[in-house]
Design a protein around this nucleic acid. Structure first.
Length: 807
DNA sequence: ATACATACC
DNA sequence: TACTGGTATGTAT
């Protein structure tokens, strides 16, 4: 019976663990043999045991679903079918076949780069990664079943000759930049999905291309070798003071600024034959791939289709080094889709596949046939997605870059159980995270601690603060408490961890910060009737703000040198590599582009165009100033009580160095520890003058609140809600309310300035890049080594903390 | 809001 | 010896 159990489990096991021949390059290999080896390498490990457990959960989910299914009557189905049909009609009406969407994907990207740079690897099976985990493998290795996301030690068993090359992200990033420059010429608003992959909307390019002369569609191979270059590539942006073109040059304009062979092939081109590409979508995409190959010596594959969902599938079809075009007709689309295995669809992974399979659904034809059933068994979002897919529908326009929603860092290490080690690691993670947050000028309200124990069980614990935080101490204060709570829960057993991570989310910048900053900008530069802090104005404000940010950025951020004419959008790469200083100074203060800036602290004009200089000035101002909105409230006015309360809450942020105050809190609950840790910082009390001054200035300059408020909320009871802190105000006295809003605004700004004198605006709307250079799969290298508990020993800081913390 | 699971690269 | 890291989103409570 033991056997029975094992074999049952083993069967389930396969679906989650077994080789995925889903990917390209895996045809005709001995799957059974491979699976056997994978199995034998894994069996008995903690990882494996955990996989079994997860598998079991999935099985139960499926069982549950099947029970549901058994309860479904013909009636139900009929009704559901009617709804499905209605929706199908609806969706059909929205079908848009007019766009030409392209998905490009580099072939075995990391592996290809490494092979390019090390010819000895060319005919060997190789993979990029480590003995613990592989990022990708070359096609030779794939024949053995070696693939991405497989641990290296197992891969070695499958293929003893496998060469494992460590990852070199700087290199991949540099190549990524090169290909993105090419992408941008076909679609300045392309959307990168990762270093090696992107969606492009070719529609506009193709329109213009129709009137291009041959010369613009002519390219020639270049002889020069990108191959050896790997050091010279990174960081060309150090100082590129002058911008070639402020305005993007359009394709159809002057031939000199259009893509032509002279430019694109570079100077030292000892070029042989030219190639003239046609005007069709296929030709344009072929041209793009050609240019990628010329430029990087790496190949890409592409899919061309009327929407993103299909393009993505298509790019896989003729991989590697191929492309596939799905004609823009309903017939072609439907035909294509119906034969598609569900697993090929982006968003349907192992689990969904298994659940669908349990219903007898393995391809999209089944999917469409079973839609009524699916609508009864799956969530609305899920079956709507299925519905779209089964009709071959997908996004026809590439969404604008979205703001990042979270940022995190995590690390795996050998078993760690000691309190001090865990704490100092936690602190290290917070340090890394704070550093990254700073780079993008973000602050978030929710801090999440992630823990994985040696049994591979993952836990997350989160806490949402009433204010946004960004500094190490602030984040650590929360993470540490979450960790402590977990330890307490587990005690007397220790937490035996193999991974720890810290994430921050609920960023303030998205909704709060932006309108806020703009209002501040309005205050500081009272040329406009702006000042916007009334909640009504926020939307219109946003638009203006984008414009303003955009122009500001255009003029201040150093553009990257483009290989060619300026068609490349000014947006993307700038955001990716924009120097921190430039970001920092954009904080929303300089708002208008000008020869000088108004210091938000001392209100003097600073005569410089150099943002670094300006920042220094602000830093200087801040360093002799301290700020404390609480104090402002207290001293500046007899303002309402709830205002003070708000601030008390909001100021809990500050956790000064060390946490040395926790000492006498032994008897207190953890909440009390929190608030005790939140006392005002002594050093901040010293001079509130500047703060007061600022508060007053803002108060004076801010006409808008006073003038707009009365109309919108006059007649009713106390329903004033502060647009900044979102709290309903007890008083409906508009003067008090205005004061409250002003102070809230103030507080936000000062809080931001307080941290590091830098609070970059978010990437403006023109941003292309998703993760701003962090879109790195699968491993991001922050600091070179910093492996396990290689404490960066911040003097006594962590030590103190440790001692106090877990007593 | 929190926790956990799924998915993608 | 050894099974990642970063982000988004869905689902359940």
């Amino acid at each position: 019976m033991e056997n029975g159990v094992i074999s049952t489990k083993a069967e389930g096991f396969l679906s989650r663990m077994a080789l995925n021949d889903n990917k390209a390059g895996m045809e005709g290999l001995d799957r059974d043999k491979i699976n056997k080896i994978i199995m034998e390498s894994s069996k008995g490990s903690r990882f494996y045991e955990n996989e079994l457990k997860k598998e079991e959960q999935v099985n139960q989910r499926i069982e549950k679903m099947m029970l549901q299914k058994a309860k479904i009557t013909e009636q139900h189905l009929k009704k559901a079918q009617a709804q499905v049909d209605r929706m199908a009609t609806e969706l059909e009406r929205s079908r848009d076949l007019s766009r030409v969407i392209v998905h490009v994907d580099m072939d075995a990207f990391y592996a290809a780069v490494e092979m390019r740079d090390c010819p000895e690897l060319k005919d060997k099976p190789m993979a990029v990664g480590s003995m613990s985990m592989l990022s990708t493998s070359n096609y030779h290795a794939r024949k053995y079943g070696v693939r991405a996301a497989m641990p290296g030690f197992i891969a070695k068993k499958l293929c003893p000759d496998l060469v494992i090359v460590p990852t070199n992200f700087d290199k991949y990033r540099a190549v990524s930049k090169e290909i993105r420059e090419i992408f941008a010429e076909y679609d300045p608003h392309f959307q990168p999905l990762s270093l090696d992959e992107a969606y492009l909307d070719f529609t506009d390019h193709l329109d213009q291309r129709q009137s291009w002369p041959d010369t613009l569609r002519t390219h020639r191979p270049r002889a020069s070798s990108t191959a050896t270059g790997e050091e010279q590539i990174e960081l060309p942006q150090e100082t590129v003071p002058e911008m070639k073109d402020l305005s993007p040059v359009l394709f159809e304009d002057s031939p000199s600024s259009s893509p032509c062979l002279l430019d694109s092939t570079g100077f030292g081109a000892a070029g042989g034959g030219f190639e003239v590409f046609g005007k069709s979508a296929e030709e344009a995409v072929r041209e793009m791939r050609f240019r990628i190959e010329q430029k990087t010596m790496l190949t890409a594959s592409a899919g061309i289709a009327p929407n993103m969902m299909l393009a993505k599938v298509c790019s896989d079809k003729n991989k590697p080094n191929g492309q596939y075009r799905l004609p823009s007709t309903k017939e072609a689309v439907m035909d294509f889709v119906q034969n598609l295995p569900v697993r090929k669809i982006c968003g349907i992974g192992k689990v969904s596949e298994k659940m669908l399979n349990a219903l007898g659904i393995s391809n999209c034809f089944h999917l469409s046939q079973q839609m009524a059933l699916l609508s009864l068994l799956f969530s609305e979002t899920a079956w709507h997605h299925f519905m779209q897919v089964s009709l071959g529908l997908g996004s026809t326009h590439i969404p604008r870059h979205e703001e990042r929603k979270s940022m995190s860092t995590e690390r795996t290490f050998r078993e760690m159980s000691k309190t001090e080690e865990q704490l100092s690691l936690c602190r290290e993670l917070c340090e890394d995270l704070a550093e990254d947050l700073k780079k993008e000028g973000l602050k978030g309200k929710t801090v999440t601690l992630k823990l994985k124990n040696v049994k591979f069980e993952v836990k997350t614990r989160a806490l949402t603060l009433p204010y946004a935080v960004a500094t190490v101490d602030e984040i650590f204060a929360v993470a540490k408490d979450l960790l402590k709570t977990e330890r307490d829960n587990e005690s007397p057993l220790p937490l035996r961890l193999r991974l720890m991570g810290v994430r921050i989310s609920a960023f303030a910048s998205a909704d709060d910060k932006k309108p806020l900053q703009k209002s501040i900008v309005g205050f500081l530069q009272p040329d406009k009737t702006d000042s916007s802090c009334a909640s009504q104005g926020i939307h219109q404000k946003m638009e203006k703000e984008h414009l303003s940010n955009h122009s500001f950025q255009t003029l201040t951020l150093a553009p990257l040198p483009l290989e060619k004419h300026g068609e490349t959008s000014d947006a993307s790469e700038n955001d990716l590599v924009a120097p921190v200083e430039a970001h920092a100074s954009t904080s929303g203060f300089g708002s208008t582009v000008s020869e000088r800036f108004t210091c938000p602290v001392c209100f003097r004009l600073v005569e410089t165009t150099d943002l670094t200089v300006f920042n220094k000035h602000i830093d200087q101002c801040l360093s002799d100033t301290s700020r404390k909105p609480n104090q402002i409230a207290a001293s500046d006015s007899e303002s309402d009580v709830d205002l003070e309360n708000d601030h008390t809450e909001c100021e809990v942020a500050g956790r000064r160095r060390g946490d040395s105050e926790v000492e006498e809190d032994k008897a207190k609950s953890s909440e009390e520890m929190d608030s005790s840790g939140a006392e005002p910082q002594e050093d901040q009390r010293s001079s509130k003058n500047k703060s007061v001054q600022m508060a007053l200035s803002i108060d004076c300059d801010n006409k808008t609140v006073t003038s707009q408020r009365p109309q919108s909320c006059n007649n009713k009871g106390p329903v004033l809600v502060c647009p900044i802190c979102q709290l309903t105000q007890d008083s409906n006295d508009l003067v008090l309310f205005n004061r409250h809003v002003d102070l809230c605004l103030n507080q936000e700004v000062l809080h931001e300035l307080g941290g590091q004198a830098s609070c970059p605006i978010n990437p403006p709307a023109v941003t292309n890049f998703k993760a701003l250079g962090k879109d790195v799969y699968p491993m991001r290298l922050r600091d070179p080594p910093s492996s396990p508990p290689s404490k960066k020993s911040k003097g006594l800081g962590p030590r103190n903390t440790i001692d106090k913390f877990f007593r």
